[in-house]
Write a protein that binds this DNA or RNA. Structure first.
Lengths: 331, 331
DNA sequence: ATTTGCTATGGGAACGTTCCCATGATTAAC
DNA sequence: GTTAATCATGGGAACGTTCCCATAGCAAAT
């Protein structure tokens, strides 16, 4: 069943049918009606291959995630999918890996499908990948979703995570915390370094101690937060506050503290980062730095679609983070 | 840059280049070498639209998930993506909704992309959707991933969840539990009913009480498990065991119990279902019924690809569940 | 010497769209 | 009443592959 058959059934030419489908060019109200009806009755669906061959558009977007076990990514995708769907796009999801070793291959896989654009997440800042992304982005727009791309000649959307963590750390200091521990990402990851920088900056400014015993490198898993809390609390002089680079790791820390009868926030304050949905459900509800995820995700996909449909010029956006004080940090 | 340009550069005809790309038909070793080299140098990528127009294959698979906040689905997808990727396929992910209201539209969206096959998850058994899936599956294979499809004229992969829950309930009874509560899915969902049936069957066989006060309907969220535990434990005669239809809800129940100093398993046993990765990390580690997720996911995608590439006949598979006893149920 | 089968290659039609161009019909403007 | 602008339609080339068919060289078998 093709455009030709529809044309015959509706008693018009294939050109007219084409005009109906692509909604451009003149077509008489009567013809329109008849073609629409015939298409409906015949359950006709335009052939995307033929369409794509002429237009070079697939209405498909490729998304690269380094890991799907952190609920941050599914939450982000949920927002993206809503918007892209409403604009007629469908999304390929590729799971790369935390070290970015498979990224180049997956980008090629996506390009082989003639996707219209790419949304890129990574834990790493791999020069080869950046070069590739830069070179394709004149043809196929790419939007990167992390602050570590700042300074690169690429489109990105990110948040001022450094300032976010800085503000939160200041808040803890001002509310009297003296020994503030930090759970950062693995040393091998470039992602999240801005968060760690904000923490260090606030400590330095306040002449607070920056000991190795107060920093733990995790792998962004919940279990790492749990282990970090154990590492901190088993010291003879444990911290009175624990900040985590992600809510997900803060969850793990909270679990450890709750299970060991260590009162939060009386004995130790806990602060996360991201403001995941579940932060209101923890015990106690988690003070966290809000990454304006919904705003960022919306912006990322809308930017990408704008670039696809209008202008491929680079667009870079930075959002503010906001400290959200809940019970896990109250004295 | 198309097959014609490559042919000219390599000094052969476009037919020979086509034979090189599609790896079929005779081509001399020398020609092969030259064409390969030219393609490499020109960074040539075959045009999938033109290819698809002739072959009617997109090497794309569509996956429908009703919800992405339950980590069960990302875990499943991770397995699927690994395998489909290794066989040259990429996956579109559509998030429908728990009530299945958007499923028909999303299926149409996918068909509009000429996907080669569909993997279908749902919380509901919507007759319209089933009719649609049955009608398309002669052309575009569909593999459903839940036991509620048993009896339908569709390909599916599922587990004997009824028996799984039955076995687990028997185990609790035999280890001396007398009042066994159950956290089921929302009444509006057809999914998970087999699990609930297994629970009821075991209770009836042992002449144990089946009170309304021992059954709670949740929405598969962690918070629902938390609420369920509160509902059960605030009764004057609380249960000595809580089973949940999903690990995710069991996590919520465990949180409630831990936070309220109710000893697990001494005061109350907790049993989940799914054997998510995180079950070994809870406190105490969670006894659960293993849904052989990896095996099922592997089977689902391999079945689908087999149907795409070989034979579209219906394939139906049922796997066994296995009780995994950890500390949350030990007396 | 002829036939057969295998290897190797090239030409051309076909897939189902879009889009440019040509052709009228009708209406509006002078 | 001619000209111009707008509306409506159809024909045909083009997009970049695959695949069928024709051709032909060469070795092995008759």
């Amino acid at each position: 069943m093709n455009i030709h058959d529809i044309a015959k059934l509706a008693g018009v030419s294939k050109s007219t049918v084409s005009r109906v489908i692509s909604k451009n060019g003149y077509v008489a109200a009567e013809s329109l009606q008849r073609v629409l009806q015939v298409m409906e009755e015949a359950n006709y669906r335009p052939n995307m291959f033929a369409k794509g061959m002429r237009t070079n558009r697939s209405y498909s977007i490729g998304i690269l995630f380094p890991d799907l076990s952190n609920p941050f990514f599914p939450e982000w995708y949920h927002v993206v999918e809503q918007i892209s769907g409403s604009k007629g796009y469908l999304n390929y999801i590729c799971i790369t890996d935390p070290f970015g070793e498979t990224e180049l291959k997956r980008i090629d896989d996506l390009l082989g499908r003639s996707i219209d654009g790419i949304i890129y997440f990574s834990y790493q800042k791999n020069p080869d990948v950046l070069t590739k992304l830069k070179s394709i982005s004149k043809q196929t727009p790419v939007v990167c979703c992390d602050g570590m791309m700042i300074g690169e000649d690429l489109s990105y959307v990110c948040a001022d995570e450094r300032k976010g963590t800085y503000d939160a750390t200041r808040f803890l200091i001002e509310s009297g915390r003296k020994r503030i521990a930090y759970i950062k990402g693995a040393d091998a990851y470039q992602i999240g370094l801005n968060r760690y920088e904000g923490y260090k900056k606030a400590l330095v400014e306040s002449d607070l101690e920056m000991a190795d015993s107060l920093v733990f490198s995790g792998d962004f898993k919940m279990a790492d937060g749990y282990e970090a809390a154990r590492f901190f609390m088993e010291q003879q002089n444990p911290p009175d506050a624990i900040m985590a680079a992600t809510d997900f790791m803060a969850f793990g820390a909270l679990n450890y503290l709750n299970e060991h009868g260590i009162n939060v926030p009386d004995s130790v304050a806990v602060v996360g980062f991201d403001n995941l949905t579940r932060t209101t459900e923890t015990n106690p509800p988690l003070t966290t730095i809000e990454l304006p995820m919904e705003k960022m995700a919306t912006n990322a996909i809308e930017t990408l679609i704008f670039q696809i449909e209008n202008d491929k010029a680079i667009i870079q956006q930075v959002f503010d983070c906001k400290l959200i004080v809940r019970q896990s940090s109250h004295l």
